[in-house]
Simulated assay, not measured.
Amino acid sequence: MSKKDKPIYGFIRLGNALVPAMNYDLAALESIAQGELVKVEIKQFRNVGRHRAYWAMLQEVIDACGLDYNAEKLHDLIKLHNGVIDFITLPSGLTVSIPASISFDKMSETDFQTFFRKAETWLAKTYGYFRQEAA
């Protein structure tokens, strides 16, 4: 089973204990024997509303400015101009920058908040766009 196919379980911290968030999570926990040691990877869930707001903001900029490219291309430009990049070396030996991923498993919520603010600043400087509500 690949990492992508593995289920993700949600737990809520209450004091020094992690409590299953839903019945689905409880069922997974009940499959483990009392006293059995388990491996836990602590990751905070990303804010889906903020992620949607980001993509809505991109579409607003495209519509307001009459840009002739789509949200994905604007997203790539934002990443390139704000250092969210990966380096690859071409067969010729030339190293180039390509946009990196901001997917939930590649970027923490804290890092996404920082990226969102940088994107807003870049959009304001580049296109004169100012969002009405805060991210």
Rank of each mutant, 00 (worst) to 15 (best):
M1Q: 14
M1Y: 12
M1R: 14
M1F: 09
K3C: 06
K3A: 15
K4Y: 14
K4L: 09
D5C: 09
K6P: 00
I8A: 09
G10I: 09
I12P: 01
I12Q: 12
R13I: 07
R13D: 05
L14D: 14
N16K: 09
N16H: 08
V19M: 07
V19R: 10
P20S: 01
P20V: 00
A21S: 14
A21Y: 10
A21G: 06
N23R: 11
Y24I: 01
Y24F: 13
D25L: 01
D25S: 09
D25V: 03
L26Y: 08
L26R: 10
L26V: 01
A28T: 02
G35Y: 02
G35T: 02
G35D: 11
V38N: 06
V38A: 03
K39Y: 09
K39P: 01
V40P: 02
E41R: 10
E41T: 10
E41I: 05
E41Y: 06
K43E: 14
K43M: 10
Q44W: 06
F45P: 06
F45I: 04
F45V: 03
V48H: 11
V48A: 13
V48S: 13
R50M: 14
R50Q: 13
H51A: 09
A53R: 13
W55I: 03
A56H: 12
Q59F: 04
E60L: 04
E60C: 03
E60K: 13
V61R: 07
I62M: 05
D63I: 12
D63T: 15
D63M: 06
C65M: 10
G66C: 04
D68R: 11
D68V: 08
N70T: 07
A71E: 06
E72I: 03
E72D: 12
K73N: 06
L74G: 01
L74M: 08
D76N: 15
D76V: 02
L77R: 10
K79L: 12
L80H: 05
L80E: 04
L80M: 15
N82I: 12
N82M: 08
G83I: 06
V84S: 02
V84G: 02
I85Y: 04
I85E: 11
I88L: 08
T89H: 03
S92H: 10
V96D: 05
V96A: 05
I98S: 05
P99W: 02
P99Q: 03
P99V: 10
S101M: 10
S101I: 04
S101T: 14
I102G: 02
S103T: 14
S103H: 13
S103V: 05
F104T: 13
F104S: 12
D105P: 08
D105F: 09
M107Q: 11
S108Y: 06
S108L: 02
E109T: 07
T110L: 13
T110S: 15
Q113S: 11
T114A: 11
T114K: 15
T114H: 13
F115Q: 05
F116H: 13
F116E: 07
K118S: 10
A119T: 04
A119W: 00
A119K: 00
E120R: 13
E120N: 12
T121S: 07
W122N: 05
W122F: 15
W122Y: 14
A124H: 12
A124N: 13
T126D: 01
T126A: 05
Y127D: 00
G128N: 04
G128Q: 05
G128R: 03
Y129N: 08
Y129I: 00
Y129V: 00
F130Q: 14
R131A: 12
R131V: 04
Q132P: 00
Q132W: 02
E133A: 08
E133F: 06
E133C: 03
A134H: 08
